[in-house]
Amino acid sequence: MEIADVKAKPALKTKKESSIKRGKILERLLVYGLLIGLSIVFIFPFLWLIGTSLKPENEALTFPPTLIPNVWDFANYKDVFTIVNFGQYYMNSIIVTVGTVLGTVLSSTLVAYGFARIKGKGRDAWFVLLLATMMLPPQVTMIPVYMIFAKLGWTNTFLPLVVPAFFGNAYFIFLLRQFFRTIPKELEESAYLDGCSTLGIFWRIVLPLSAPAIITVALLSFMWTWNDFLGPLIYLNDDAKYTLALGILQFKGALLIEWGPMMAASVLIILPLIIMFFVGQRYFIEGIATTGGKG
């Protein structure tokens, strides 16, 4: 055995190399196999959603089900707008979302800059308090806040959903503060020496440099507001005021569910988020990664 080994030394070397190579290839195959398998599992519900939205009613309920519709039928997408007040829901969601995003960006950037750069007395204590509020389950404050808005006569309006955004969001304040601290201080200092006020520095120097972080905040806040269910459920009780998340449930009666139109409506709700994701992918992923990674 040993003699054979010595004789075969050059061959052995290449054999060993090739076995390492084979191991590498095997590992690659395993990784790609898993990735492709999991991709199919993750993508399948989407295909199912789109497929059902294009099926005529009788095909949606057949057994065994068909993945790709036998007949492509866009009628569901038309029905979405006639069965329920879908156009109105869409408009309502847009109003609430745009208002919330605007309020969030305006207030959170301002507050975040205070925490990032202005060494006022008591800053650290307030910052700890801000972080603590992120852990607070919103259910603790939900009932009294509801009572405040009820007292103001704001129930069944969009105000309870939009107005709180103008007082800043702890999560975004934290994200923006982390970003502001990476801006070189020298820029602000030289502007200060030139006689620029703190507000001027914030407005003319810091904000323009922070576009990526602001876009991230706007995108995330858009997504959360668009998806919010509990808020509209508590505050809106008139069909004409419903946002999409509430409105889509109108397709679901206690006994009868109109699957085709409901799935078509779901596609229409998801669509803006998907488009937004592809347009702003970089900001999305970075935003989630920075807040998560540097906590």
Partner: peptide, 27 residues
Amino acid sequence: KTFSFYMFILPWLIGFFIFTAGPMIYS
């Protein structure tokens, strides 16, 4: 500096008392 710090965080500060601290005590 302290004054301008509080001016900057004012929106959150007001929100904190109206929507968090006050409601917590009340609840």
